[in-house]
Amino acid sequence: MEVLVASATGVLVAVGVYLLLRGQTFPVIVGLTFLSYAANVFLFAIGRLAINRPPIISPDAAGYTDPLPQALVLTAIVISFGMTALIMVLALRGFLETGSDRVDLDTLDDAQAPREKPDPVRVGSPA
């Protein structure tokens, strides 16, 4: 089981990093989401894996898994939602202001070149 969790974490990280290296906002944001998954799972795994040992105090329980990483991960999940939302909105505002959803600043050459007119944007057209 540990192999599955470890390899899954690795794949999540790899996909996250790969998407982060893309040039447009949406893949970058999805990449961050993947990295959040990976970070949460990794942090959770620090408490080691256990089956049927939920940290709910009960007289019948055979044992408990480590609750602390779970508490940390719980808030991390919610915070990463807040972060995703914020970055998404930043990207959206940037797109609305400039008509471009690239994540890079224009390089010097681009800045000197005449800008293409983005208006009116056609959204939602099939690829």
Binding site: G10, V13, L21, F42, I46
Partner: peptide
């Protein structure tokens, strides 16, 4: 893809080692 894979393998190894 190369950079990402190396990072992923590193994390996977680390996670396995920890667990």
């Amino acid at each position: 893809a190369g950079v990402a894979s190396v990072a992923g393998i590193g994390i996977a190894g680390l996670a396995y080692a920890v667990m």
